[in-house]
Nucleic acid binder design. Structure first.
Lengths: 179, 179
DNA sequence: CGTGGAGTTGAATACGATCAACACCGGTGG
DNA sequence: CCACCGGTGTTGATCGTATTCAACTCCACG
């Protein structure tokens, strides 16, 4: 059991839950949503836009934390859905408990690093979405998350990359032909 | 002077600096870069992609913090340039100093909130870049950062939004015609 | 067997990028 | 005072990439 899990489970308000594949843990419009630690399984969060189209914001395999941070920080109803892509065991917790005073200095710095690394990944994602053509985004994705293509359907990868599923299909056949 | 500024200035390694418009505080390739607090003025960070094209990652007016967090967290050379768009006064600091043990519990939680809100804004930005057409992105931008259009040239706003400057020009004339 | 979700492929379309020409303004220097 | 210049922004024509629409295959699962 990880250090992070220890901290979460000693918190009185943390709750441990199990879900089935396809279960929705959080819906758009929900109030007072909390971050979700993934102990086992795989989750995704996604937005449904004004035209009814899904856009996957992130995937969360084991050890990751997922949730609608914008909604939590600004006390708005959630914009994101959180769904289980596999049967999953998760811990729902309060965001403050990663920084409570009872933690050691080292632990605080470690949890701070968690947030900074998340910012770092988002930075990369933003720069990719702005500057990089679809094919390069896909190549980066499979290099960075080599296990995910085996666990999530391709149309969801397309949604994560911000491209149409047919486009990803075409890109993949291009890569297969050329190399 | 803000609470945040107090903390930064009591740190022995924080350094106060003044820059002129056009000065580069950080370049791509720089090692051991640090976060930059903007006391006065306006900064931008940007990437130059493989085709030589600029993509603005963020603007930082007074009170904001800017830097290449991905590079800092993963100990890589910087990918981003940081440039002054106006004459600016800044504080260069160490990222850990926002979470050092000597701070009060409340202060730690406040600085944690700083990071979470940054994540929240990035979340919004990612979802916008994926799902939203150029015109809606622009409308959101001027609503969210009403002071920036007066302080930065329009081609930089276009670069921030991930669209060509000519496209933004066309969008603006559409808005002017229709409403 | 059927049925529905997933993936592929192709044709037509749309949105934004690129290229190019021009207007405008502020500063500089003759 | 004016001529020149670079940076900025606008507009229109053309091009390219990705979307949309549609038909089809392939499986997994009832």
């Amino acid at each position: 059991m990880s250090n992070l899990e220890d901290i979460l489970l000693t918190s009185p308000k943390a709750t441990y839950k199990s879900y089935q594949k396809g279960d929705l843990i959080q819906r758009a419009g929900d109030l007072n949503t909390v971050p979700i630690y993934v102990k086992q399984g795989l989750l995704r969060s996604y937005l449904i836009d004004s035209k009814g189209k899904e856009h996957i914001y992130m995937f969360a395999p084991e050890g990751w934390i997922i949730g609608d941070i914008e909604a939590m920080e600004y006390h708005q109803p959630a914009a994101l859905y959180v769904e289980c892509l596999e049967a999953s065991e998760v811990i729902l917790f309060e965001k403050d408990c990663l920084f409570k005073a009872s933690l050691s200095k080292d632990q605080i710095l470690e949890n701070k690093q968690l947030l900074l690394r998340r910012i770092g990944r988002l930075q990369r994602r933003v720069l990719m979405l702005m500057g990089t053509p679809a094919i390069d985004r896909y190549q980066y994705f499979i290099k960075t998350y080599p296990e995910l293509p085996n666990r999530v359907p391709q149309h969801m990868i397309a949604s994560f990359l911000g491209i149409a599923p047919q486009t990803l299909s075409t890109i993949r056949s291009q890569i297969a032909r050329n190399g």
